[in-house]
Design a protein around this nucleic acid. Sequence first.
DNA 1: TCGTCTGGCACTTTTGAATGGC
DNA 2: AGCCATTCAAAAGTGCCAGACG
Length: 776
Amino acid sequence: MLSVEMYPSLALGPQRMGDCFYRDRQASAHMPVFPTACDVAAKVLPPRLLPPLPIPNDTTTKTPKTDVRMELENASLWKQFSSVGTEMIITKKGRRMFPGLRLKLSGLNPSLRYILLLDIIPVDNSRYRFQGGGWQAVGGAEARLPDRVFIHPDSPATGAHWQSRTISFHYAKLTNNTLDSQGHIILHSLHRYQPRVHVIEARDVLRWGGGQHTFVFPETQFLTVTAYQNNKITELKINSNPFAKGFRDDGMNSKKQRDARQKRKISVSTDPLDIVNCDPCDSTELQPITTGTDLQALALASLPQLPDPSCGFRPEGDPYQDTLVPEHQLDLGQAFMASQISDIGISMVNGMQDTGGSEVENHMIERSDTIGEPSYTSTFSATNSSSFPLAPLPQSSSSFPSLPVPESSDTSNPQPIDYPSILSSSPTLSSSSSSTPSLQQTSFTFPTPPPSSASSPQSLLSSTPSVNTYHTIAETISPHTSTDASFPAQPSTCQSGLQDQISVHSLLIQPSHTLQGEPITSGNNSSIDQSSAAFTYPNIFPANPDPAPVTAQYFPNYSHPQAPSLSCSHGAPTSFAFPSVPPHMQNLSFSNVSPSSAHHALHLPNLSHQAQAASLASFPPSSFTHPSSSLPHPHPTFQPSSCLAVSSSFQQSVSSAPSMAPTAHPQNLRNASTSSYPPVEIGAIPQFNPSAPYRPEMVLHHPSLLPQLDPSIPSSLPSSTPPPTLYSAFPSYPLRLCQDPHSSISIPFRHLYRQPQHGHTHPQGPYLDMSSRAVF
DNA sequence: TCGTCTGGCACTTTTGAATGGC
DNA sequence: AGCCATTCAAAAGTGCCAGACG
């Protein structure tokens, strides 16, 4: 239904420029190329697209009222892994994530269409090594890899569609192949990453506008590995992932069986004709026999399996003898299978019409998936469960903002968990969005959560340490973010994640839902603690001319030194420099901007960084040894289960900024008004020196640069609310889209993303250049 | 020598085509 | 002819492991 032809007038947004830019940068690894061909091409854009950006003079401009909330359904499973130190295998061909991101969305306009994106960004600029039973940062991170974004196959779909079912990104694959052409997310091994989920209001895939929300779940941070380092993680994976069922204790590929086979193998090598000791389950063991005579091999191959106590094979181990097969294992598998059955193939057309008619059915399936309960009890303690060591603060070589994103629900914990919400600095993001556990249950039954008004929000700040809280950062960031050309090579004193100001507008508490494919204890109350709201990143820069830097709200128990909550002073309304964007874009900045101020512009609130910092702050304290922290002040540990929520509207944050400290610090992520942490001057921290050549990727969101939305279609944004003038792109982590190979989207839609179909081959994957006219 | 990565292996699950019954 | 359920095989997803690589 959707086709390129439908959008002949598509205008290339500024964000895409940045995306295009990355290719060139990637080619040079550490040496960012600037300006890039894309930038040059941007210069030739029709002048009509680049009218002077009006200076926002309305300091009271409100960001779109949005209470979009996202819950991580399988949060409990994620927490189990994170408590140990989540490791994700990456392979050349691509490896799925496990646990996967299973999300529930609410607060969307049912009639509007949205695009859901998943990207994974580095948490820090460190490389890790598993030593002494823990992960330790052992050096600097490698050059940043191509930024790729995984588009949910249902995208675009109506808000009703997204809210009517569990959203899963299990099709997304991770790879360490820098030349991957399959569109997988490229990551470095032995690095720490944080997934993010973006919800973008879009008229269609080529018309993005309105609000954007980015959600980060700190517990979904993970370390990439090519082989599991921590045996506990392996054990968790085997017991949680149905595909690894064979490696369970009762599986045919279990350690015992393998050891027995290995033992027999040795025995066979000694006596190749020892047929008695041959494990009938291991065809490889026939190999030595085949060396004897072909007749022997054929005869053996046709023989029925024989129990052989000496080789570990047991008749009871025969899967066909169901009476001896443990049932709990089956539960897990069934649960996962059910989850896999979940709706994936929603066509765009259906998405338009989908009103969630099958909500009940979907939830039934979802719940069925969660029947299987992992034998592991979540150890994700609220106070000190983080298994990831804190990376040393970025020194100078590179700045990687850290942002977390996870999903999972845990029913293992029968105790109801409150989901306090961070007090929103923005009036539009009041704490009312939080919901009580009872509401969570209700939302579980009905995919579309009831109005949040019924919920009883709990202040995150006031929450007790034991309370699992997730902060939601509402965000209107434009998906078309510019890339940071200088990112890999530029030493940055203003770390992307650290320097950016973070404004936590609200902590949205969401009821948890049972997860698909995730082990869940059961029941209604299980859902309570399973879901978690995500951090949302405000992408709108305040129209408020107040030059005072916005202070990021404190995140409780934030303990990550590198989690840069340092806010760079941003004269949001006044002037911004965009080194990474084409010159004309840079000129779009506002009055009062001087060449010298460009640097400060670089330190303008980087929402992505903010979110990253927030996510880090909320990540459970590391139980692993970690290099000395460079933070000048020790920080109380952040509640492991809590999730930071950052208002999507930067303007909102700005409006509330007056109450905030003038400078931002990782500690300042929490609401300054309630925070017990004194604001820290950025300048006091050498690593966060604003003078660093960090180049922001903030993207101007000028109306002329954005496709016009059909006014006839209701928007989630208040009609009276002017569109955000600025989108705080993810400075160092621009969105880069790639199509899910299993996408259910119609061919024309896929055509927009899949490079093979598009005819543009590129070693870096399915990126569309400007000539493709694709916004992504 | 050590740490890391790769490809193949065995096992399991998922997926879709083929088949048959109503 | 259309729909549904079942069966089956191929594809894909797992962790493990030996060997290769730097």
